[in-house]
Computed example of a mutant assay.
Amino acid sequence: MKLARRLRRHIDMPRDVLVLGMIAFFVALGFGVLVPVLPTFATHFGANDLMVGMVVSTFAAMRLATSPFCGRILERIGGRITLAVGIFIVAISSSTMAFAKNYWWLLGWRAAGGIGSAMFSVSAMTLLLGSVPARMRGRASGFYQSGFLIGGMAGPALGGLLAKISIVAPFHFYALTLAVAGTLGLAMLTTSTTHAADSSAEKIARPLREILADTRFQAACAANLAQGWNSIGVRSSLIPLVIVGGLGLTPTWTGIVFAVAAVVQTIALAPVGRFVDTVGRRPAMLVAGAVMAVAIMGVPLSRSIWPIMGIMCVYAIGAAAMGTAPAASVGDATGGVRGGTPVALFSMSSDTGAILGPLAAGALSDQFGRPLGFAAGAVLLAFSSMMALRMPRQKFSHQQ
């Protein structure tokens, strides 16, 4: 409670936003710790490259399969309880994976973690969008994303150190950080999901069919699909191949490029969030999609590491906008009310991109060369910009 009060004095955000940012940090820290060791741990059971890939992708696949049910769960037991239960499911699955006796045990418990992750993701975003008025949704989304980015930057380095102690130590550490996050959610989040400062009209729940027909929601889902395809999928699968295979550098350089880009994205989140809340969601999504499309196409055409690093920093600024403006647009479309099912659909669009992106980009790259593998993602980003053109012109002043 004291930590939340201190943060609130320095950051003009409601308490729930601060708490969700802290929860995001602990979740991302633990997830990042697991990243360096999970593939290696799977090979201990004789897993080949395809089987290792299944361990990674089954988590996202179960998130996608579970997300449609999260809205009903949230409406039945509330956002705070849904978030905590989801986090504790992932914690139990992580700890249990450390005791896996064979590959299928590992795969099964990893899949169970995806179920809990979907519950956490949908409820956290629903609580976030419902805890702030429209004029603050961009900045709130940016603060929440910064928790993930900071935790994600620290996690892999810590995971490498823990792996020197024991290959299973990161699994238990992940469970511990998740237990902390779940406890924070239960103890510090409020049960209300509607900001009291919003107008009475905005508090009225819109029918789902109206939300689905809203151009703001449609553009947000298109942007999230493109973001999942590129930032989660293509970025993780093809860019390391360009750096290591194309330029002949060590994997360390991939980590350096990603770390520098993550720092740039974290720094950009605050000013981008203010831009989204004052200038508007529409211009932010329009420019971000175009900038990211051009940037991602520059990666396979680069002939040294320095242009790639610069390109990824530019891409990171666009990604900061794509991490804030679409989420704020979902809040606008729902009015911060009845967000469970729409937020689940929004989350599913990103998961769909993250699952299909690496497969499609890899197949295109194998058959026609890496530039075409990147081009497919660039087309989706350009499409998201065109979808943003259909959004109403809208901005929110701080006096609103």
Rank of each mutant, 00 (worst) to 15 (best):
A205W: 06
M13C: 10
G116N: 02
S67V: 01
A268N: 05
V27P: 02
M13A: 14
I23D: 02
F143M: 12
A100V: 11
I296Y: 13
A60L: 13
H398M: 14
A375Q: 10
I239H: 02
L18S: 03
G185P: 01
S236Y: 13
G114S: 09
A226K: 04
V337I: 13
T66N: 10
V37Y: 02
L18P: 00
G310E: 12
S365D: 05
G53H: 07
F171V: 05
D351W: 08
A42Q: 03
Q399N: 13
G336R: 01
G248T: 15
A223M: 15
L178H: 12
I204C: 07
M97H: 11
S131A: 09
T352I: 15
V90H: 03
Q145E: 15
Q367D: 02
F59R: 01
L50M: 14
T193D: 14
V287H: 04
S67R: 11
F45G: 00
V35P: 00
G71V: 12
P326A: 12
V279P: 00
P371L: 07
V168P: 00
Q400T: 11
M62I: 12
I256Y: 11
V330P: 00
L380G: 01
M322R: 08
T190Q: 13
S350D: 05
M348P: 00
S192N: 14
G46F: 03
L212R: 08
S117V: 10
F148A: 02
R15A: 15
L184R: 02
F31N: 11
I89M: 11
A290G: 00
S237L: 09
F99K: 08
I87R: 04
T190E: 14
A100C: 10
S384F: 04
A163N: 06
S199L: 12
A111K: 06
A360S: 12
S199C: 05
T191G: 11
A270P: 00
A47F: 03
N230M: 15
G86N: 07
L208S: 08
V337F: 04
